[in-house]
Design a protein around this nucleic acid. Structure first.
Lengths: 363, 363
DNA sequence: CTGAAAGCGCTTACAG
DNA sequence: CTGAAAGCGCTTACAG
């Protein structure tokens, strides 16, 4: 320890160590002269000021909350829904003075959490006071670790764990509404582009087996909705061409759309996100398939870009969800010690927004 | 403290408290039976596992690094250069298992840091082991606070502080090259769009006074470069129409471009970022001013989108800069206690990339 | 207004 | 292999 501590300052100033603490945190407890003297000595010694760790250890509070998300940071923040989460968190005034700690749960960390003695090696307690978990696969070890460490947390979208604070939407119902819009327009040859069913890097067409064993809850739920509505319209799983993009980004979406549009004879595409939908429109454009005249495309999310693109989509309140989650978290953080708040689940409504990327089937 | 601690576990298991510590961290120091017994008792008591604070206090390491940036998170991460910083940081393997703590230096925090006794109230020590500071205005109190608290840190782009680790480019020289390209094409009526000279919310045309007192170093430097090159070509400051967008985002850029293009008779526009340049191209399109036939536009940064847009620009290695900064930081973090590394400054080269948004002046 | 004690949760020597 | 001591840097009662 090359650094100067309160003890050193106290020694040099000829006062007790708590007096130094007071000089910084409780000016009223000291005479002005005393305080000034102490701060001068501190400056002379190059004391960097109180170390947060000491304070935290006593107070039990860290002053930071954590955000857990899949993928590397740079990938995660290229995604509109991650940005929406950040926006929601930063809109909560109470959180304005706490730091936000990012836990990108890339594979390295995932593996180490798994392999560790089942205590879970992802040490969180003492690093953050609470966590917001956004869109993690089912049974992700990080969620288990958070539970074990008894940190307050709120989950956005996924996973859905009994007895935890949760904010989401009715993904299955919204998906039914989404594909029903196309069915109502007379489409029967429908392709489906989903971003990811499992974070294992797979891209390409998927079969029912992969669908049923998917670990990404919201995509699985939406796909379930598609299948349910399709069945009600007399279409089976095999009548739908389902392509997994393998990523959340536009490039993955364009590749998936290319595969879908060049190897299948579809008149409409359901995408499980607006990013995928817009990637599909781009690809359709490149393939000279006018939208909506020869191809209908419907998205999900209603991201800001969707308006300009005239994309028909399912609107969900992405920012509001994050705001609500952040509020739920602060409630827990503010609860008196020992008081256990009853977990609540909040499901936000969604709505169909018809713009110009879908039309009645022709030919 | 409602939570169980090692002491409680030790008591219940009939062992010493350090033995519990060993059970978690030094399995080899205990017999297998002993260890198993301890972990069982811990599980029975609901012990959440070692608290990072205790460990940190002893070891002096937190296991997190900080990232300081202007603006709210949601705004910051809409900016390609912030994404590049994240990408750079996450590319450093050594940083893969440390958490990244974000300090968005919004005005609230800024004010509180300012007003605080000049000790600087932004408590960092103990929250993070080191910091990357990206593009902060000159004399930002957070930088002073970091210096005072003697935390290892690296600054990317701005501010430029003597005796600190720094990664940047030759902004002034690059800017000269940038505008020179237009001058070489015969342009003399040149408009300039800059994002921000001061984070005070101002938008609109700027005069020399505002330019000379600007706190945003890189923009000030680039503008200096423009003026120098313009003067060498016989143009004064007042011959250049300089518009400050007041923000880093496309919407601010489009507003600025609209002002510039509708109230001035320019044949070319220099933008101090690709985001601004692309916003300008969009606005030009809306105003029916074909680029480059009737208007040349040159950007700065070479963001990924620039390629597709055919934007002529100044390329700078944004990700490499962040990688280098992250490496400099880890070097400091890994240095043996007491060893003071000599601060270094790294200036990366830039280059002119001519695409299709600039052309010889006509008429 | 000032000081001495206790303790937050943990790890690391050090002795047996 | 096991245990008792010391201490990381600080804050909060508590006594004078």
């Amino acid at each position: 320890m090359a650094t100067v501590s309160m003890k050193d300052v106290a020694l040099a100033a000829g006062v007790s160590q708590p007096a130094v603490s007071y000089a910084y945190n409780r000016p009223a407890k000291l005479s002005e002269a005393q305080r000034k003297h102490i701060l001068e000595v501190a400056a002379k010694l190059g004391y960097p000021g109180p170390n947060v760790m000491g304070r935290s250890l006593r107070s039990g509070k860290v002053g930071a909350i954590g955000l857990m998300m899949m993928d590397k940071l740079s990938v995660a923040f290229a995604d509109p829904s991650a940005i929406a989460v950040l926006r929601g968190i930063s809109e909560i005034g109470e959180l304005e003075n706490v730091a936000l700690t990012l836990f990108p749960l890339n594979n390295k960390r995932l593996e180490s959490a798994k392999e560790a003695t089942n205590e879970g090696s992802l040490a969180l307690r003492g690093l953050v006071d609470g966590l917001i978990i956004s869109t993690l696969p089912d049974n992700h070890p990080a969620v288990l670790a958070t539970l074990k460490q008894k940190l307050p947390f709120v989950i956005i979208d996924s996973p859905l764990v009994d007895g935890t604070f949760f904010v989401g939407i009715d993904d299955r119902g919204a998906a039914r509404t989404q594909i029903q819009h196309l069915l109502d327009l007379g489409h029967r040859k429908i392709g489906i582009i989903i971003d990811r069913l499992n974070p294992d890097g797979y891209r390409g067409p998927i079969n029912e087996q992969r669908f049923r064993t998917a670990s990404e809850r919201i995509v699985r739920e939406r796909l379930t909705g598609y299948v349910e509505a399709a069945e009600a319209a007399g279409l089976g799983f095999d009548d739908l061409c389902v392509i997994e993009a393998g990523g959340l980004d536009s490039t993955s979406g364009q590749t998936a759309a290319f595969t879908l549009l060049t190897s299948n004879d579809v008149t409409a595409v359901v995408a499980c996100s607006d990013v995928m939908a817009m990637a599909c429109m781009k690809t359709a454009d490149a393939l000279q398939r006018p939208v909506p005249q020869t191809l209908s495309v419907i998205g999900f999310d209603d991201i800001p870009e969707a308006v300009q693109a005239g994309l028909t989509t399912i609107g969900q309140p992405m920012v509001e969800k994050a705001v609500f989650a952040a509020q739920m978290l602060t409630e827990q953080l503010n609860a008196p010690a020992g008081v256990h708040l009853e977990p609540r689940q909040k499901i936000f409504p969604t709505r169909l927004i018809v713009r110009h990327s879908t039309a009645r089937v022709t030919g």
